[in-house]
Amino acid sequence: MPDKNVLLMVKNVSKEFPVKKNKLYAVSDVSFSVSRGETLGLVGESGCGKSTLAKMIAGSLPVSTGSITLDGVDYTGLSAREFRKFRRNIQMVFQDPLSSFSPRMRIGTYLCEPRINYDHISRQEAMEEAGVLLEKVGLPVEFLNRYPHELSGGQLQRVAIARAIAINPKLLICDEATGALDVSIQNVIAKLLVDLVEEKNIGCIFIGHDLALVRSVTQHIAIMYLGRIVEYLDSETLEEKCMHPYTRALLEAIFDVYCDQNEDIKLLTGEPPSPLVVHKGCPFAQRCERCRNECLENRPELAEAGPNHLVACFNPL
């Protein structure tokens, strides 16, 4: 993924958690990059390590091995003090709108916080900016005096986005940011995000489990399975070009509104294996119908399969 405009570089990042005598491999050897103005989608089922990866990129969780650089600065080794200053460059929007708000803090105060903390501007100044921000995300200025429980989920998510962009971060991470919302609101938020990323020319990582939605807001998609990226490809041509059996399975698991009821569902049997066990072969082998002997013996590495297309499979589609 060579690009002169590269903003974020994630290189061979792994994360292990000690579990009793064992080790849980949450993320293993993940590498990718995000350019300015680009939105990368991270898709996978629960437990695939996408949220752990997001936390490491946001700096809330230290990496076990590997490096993450933003604008040429490797921030995995920064001291706590240095990192507090650096942190403004990466902001995050979470899934559950209500739990990202302190129940007893007014929307205005919530929006002012980052500017006051990082730039030490006066409260009054920050409040004026907060009003502008609210209008930018399409909410009335009166909301400054409201409490979180007085707003709907979609409105809260807009406020969370407004707060994230208040300090002009270089990278925005959305962890299932639209997952808890109704479909019509989902689209509004998705559109707002796309516009903001374009306008501010920032990088964005959009994490989700709904491949169809992620595809609609991103340029590239990385599919994760059991802590690894198994395929990386262009969003636009996702359906035609995807080569990994798991990506195909994810696509087939989506029920289309205009589907044929008489057509059988193509089922992926079983469930993802435990991340506590180290697999010799391909992590997907047990559930894969294209599995061969080779797949059980060796692990396929992510390899170039075309322009902007990487896939980790011995027997791709």
């Binding site: 946001a58 809330s60 507090r84 942190r87 403004r88 990466i90 902001q91 995050m92 979470f94 559950d96 739990s99 990202s100 708000f101 302190s102 129940p103 007893r104 803090m105 916080e113 980052p114 903390n117 990082y118 969370a160 707060r163 300090i167």
Partner: peptide, 26 residues
Amino acid sequence: NNVFIEQARMGGASNWKILTVYIIPN
């Protein structure tokens, strides 16, 4: 371990501020 504490950290709040502004009122 609430998400809003995580978000307060991202918004640059110091430990003291998190304790007095985000935790104690709740």
